[in-house]
Structure formats: C-alpha cells, structure tokens
C-alpha cells in the first residue's frame, strides 16, 4: 500500500537481488548451451557463431554488468557485516556500481572490436 523506502542503500539492495535472480535464471541456459559441446558439437558451434550478433553482444555486456554488480554488491555486504563501516557504505555502493559498469564496458569494447 505504501511506497517502499527510498534511499541509496535500498537501490543497492534491489540491484543485488535483481541481478542475483537474473544470473540464476541465466545459468541453466548457459550450462545447457555449454553441454552441447558434448552432445551436439554442430549445435555448439552454431550457438557460438550466434554470439556474433550485435544484439547478443549487448546482452552479454548486460550479463557481465549483472555479474560484476552482484560481485561488488556482495563484497560490500560482507564488508559491512564483518566490519563497522557505516559511514562509507554509500560510497562503497556507488563505487560498486561504477566498477561494474567499467568492467562491462571493457568487455563490450572487446567484443565490439572483434
């Protein structure tokens, strides 16, 4: 009924949760496609060739962003839980997102160059 709270750490939490769900949904697909290498090598090759599509590259960049966001978000959480760092939490949350964006961009530049 009421709005949920609105502040930086709340958004950091939502990003952590949503990225976690998205990665968990992606993993079975990822695993299935990789196992084609054993069961159906031709299909495996065509899946790999499919990743050349520009849209697929953008989607891959998005996945890398989610992975990094979840990694940095999780590191922030564990740092917060194991040390008393409250004052710098917001900075860390922001740094986590910035770092994720940076690595995803790096990845995207690599695939785009290919």
């Amino acid at each position: 009924m009421m709005n949920t709270p609105r502040h930086a750490l709340h958004w950091a939490h939502l990003l952590h949760r949503v990225s976690g769900i998205a990665l968990a949904l992606f993993l079975p697909v990822h695993f299935y496609l990789l196992s084609l290498a054993l069961t159906d090598p031709d299909a495996f090759s065509s899946v790999i060739a499919f990743t050349d599509q520009p849209l697929v590259k953008v989607a891959e960049g998005g996945l890398v962003f989610l992975l990094c966001a979840h990694l940095f978000g999780g590191l922030r959480l564990m740092a917060l839980e194991s040390l008393s760092w409250t004052a710098t939490q917001k900075t860390l949350a922001a740094a986590g997102i910035a770092g994720s964006a940076l690595v995803a961009l790096l990845f995207f530049l690599q695939v785009a160059r290919a």
């Binding site: 090759s45 790999i48 992975l67 790096l106 990845f107 690599q110 290919a114």
Partner: peptide, 15 residues
Amino acid sequence: LAVMLYAVQGGLTAA
C-alpha cells in the same frame, strides 16, 4: 571475468 575478456578477443569460436 578475466577468461571471458581474454576469450572474446577476436570473436568466439568453438575451435
């Protein structure tokens, strides 16, 4: 992440 950044250089191929 490092493996991916390395592997995608020059495009992915099964070979």
